[in-house]
Amino acid sequence: MSNDVDNSRRKFIAAGVAGTAGLVLAPGVTLLDMANARPAGEAASSTKRWGMLIDSTKCATGCNDCVTACGKENGVASTGRPETDPQWIRKIELKEVKSGKSHSLPMMCQHCAEPPCVDVCPTGASFKRADGIVLVDRHICIGCRYCMMACPYKARSFVHEEHDDQNPDVPRGKGCVESCTLCVHRIDKDLEPACVEACSAGNHGAMLFGDLNDANSEISKRIATYATTQVRADLALNTGVRYQGI
């Protein structure tokens, strides 16, 4: 029965895709925005590329809402040992050397299209999902930390000690490397990442989540309109997380 439901839903969506395809005016320009919801039995596809746009002009120094939400959602808590505590997202305060202009922004895995962590991983535990989310498969991570050496954003953390307070949706444990998953378990349920949700809930509006492959998505429109930056753009990693205002 649930299979039938799945099947009929799949058929319906396939028909929807075909219909939408017919409405394509030019490559990359569609009239209709397809529903995001992907059935549970369907694999993530490369037609989407999830990304985030962070407006540092709206991000206040001292505001930690995104970090707090991430910790709560993913069960990443401080043990009081800051040097070994994992951090999936952190606030960085920046100051331009000459002008003294300061910025505040959240920094996390940038979900590169060409992720160095994936290249260097000896077992293939570090991988990029079809929809652009860079993840660690802890089932085959051996804890060598080579990805941490390779990441230009210091986005990855090694789990230095045992944990037993995992969120059932977010497995994590001693001896493996981990980083921001873009809340993949939420995305698969058609929800926004926890940090973005918290930023909106706090009326800060500094974080925008969406599909970079969809020209009509809010995020794509913003990127097409305003000057945005990729951090360490010199490395040409084509990051999924973009910044505005720095």
């Binding site: 952190r90 920046l94 954003y153």
Partner: peptide, 10 residues
């Protein structure tokens, strides 16, 4: 991470 800027964080 941000060449030309002074960075600080937790």
């Amino acid at each position: 991470i941000f060449p030309g800027m002074v960075e600080s964080s937790s």
